[in-house]
Amino acid sequence: MVLSEEIMKILNKQYEPLSFIESTFKRYDIGFKTDDAGRPILLFIGKKDDKGKIKGERFARRLKLGPNGDVIKDHWDNKGKTE
């Protein structure tokens, strides 16, 4: 699975720092963790099971910042299936 431009619009926003945000995107349930600046860094996308866990794919953000806080690298890696 590749992250579409539509979901990247959601992931490029700032949220509450150090939190877990749950939402829906089209027919998928999504959940993501944010870092201390409120940027999403870990994404789960799939369907929730009866226990509330999202079964599907897991993505991790690789974010490299320069000494003055400028973004040098920013991309998402697919880390495989979640169970």
Rank of each mutant, 00 (worst) to 15 (best):
A37K: 15
L18S: 12
P67H: 02
S23Y: 10
N68E: 15
A37E: 15
A37H: 13
L18D: 14
F59S: 02
E83W: 10
D49R: 05
K48M: 03
I10K: 14
I45E: 10
T82D: 01
D50I: 08
R58E: 14
K9D: 14
R58Y: 03
D77C: 01
S19A: 13
D36A: 10
G80M: 04
P17T: 10
L18K: 15
T24A: 03
G46F: 08
K13S: 13
S4V: 02
K9I: 09
G56A: 05
F44E: 07
G31E: 03
I41W: 04
P67R: 10
L11F: 11
I10A: 09
K79D: 03
K81F: 06
G80L: 04
P40M: 05
E16N: 12
P17S: 11
M8A: 06
L11H: 07
S4N: 11
G52D: 07
F59Q: 00
L63K: 11
L11I: 08
I45M: 15
D77F: 02
L43F: 09
L3E: 05
G69S: 03
D36R: 14
S19H: 10
R61K: 13
E57Y: 13
F20A: 06
F32E: 03
S23W: 10
Y15M: 08
W76D: 01
R58P: 01
W76M: 00
I7L: 15
I7T: 04
I41H: 08
S4I: 05
M1I: 10
K47S: 11
W76S: 02
G80W: 05
G66T: 06
R62C: 06
G38V: 07
L42W: 13
S19K: 13
D36M: 13
D50G: 01
F44I: 01
I72M: 14
S19L: 07
K47Q: 14
D50N: 05
P17G: 11
K73E: 15
E57P: 00
D36G: 10
K81V: 04
N68F: 14
